[in-house]
Deep mutational scan, measured.
Amino acid sequence: RHRTTFTSLQLEELEKVFQKTHYPDVYVREQLALRTELTEARVQVWFQNRRAKWRK
Rank of each mutant, 00 (worst) to 15 (best):
H2T: 11
K53R: 10
V26P: 12
K20I: 14
H22W: 06
V28Y: 05
T21Q: 08
N49I: 10
K16G: 06
R51Q: 04
Q44R: 10
R35S: 07
L9H: 13
V43W: 01
L14V: 00
Q10C: 04
F6W: 07
V17P: 00
L32G: 03
E40L: 08
H22R: 10
R50P: 00
W54H: 15
A52Q: 10
Y27E: 11
L32S: 02
V26H: 12
P24I: 03
R29C: 11
Q31S: 11
A33Q: 03
D25F: 00
R55T: 06
R3N: 15
W54T: 11
E13G: 02
K56M: 01
V26G: 10
L11D: 14
V26M: 12
Q19R: 08
R51G: 02
V26C: 14
L32P: 00
P24L: 01
N49H: 09
R29W: 05
T5F: 03
R50L: 01
L32M: 02
T39L: 03
T5D: 15
A33H: 03
P24A: 03
L14Q: 00
Q48V: 10
R42L: 15
H22I: 05
A52K: 11
W46T: 01
E40T: 10
L9N: 15
L14E: 00
D25L: 02
Y23L: 04
F47A: 00
H2E: 15
R55Y: 09
Q48C: 07
L9V: 14
E13N: 00
T4V: 12
Q10R: 03
T5Y: 08
W54F: 12
R35N: 04
R42N: 14
K20D: 10
V45I: 14
E12K: 09
R51C: 03
R51T: 03
K20F: 08
S8T: 12
F47G: 03
L9W: 13
P24Y: 00
W46S: 02
T36M: 14
R35Y: 05
R51L: 04
E13V: 06
L11I: 13
L11T: 10
K56S: 15
F47E: 01
A41S: 11
R55V: 09
L32T: 04
F47Y: 02
K16N: 07
L9E: 15
R29M: 15
T21F: 04
T4Q: 13
Q10K: 01
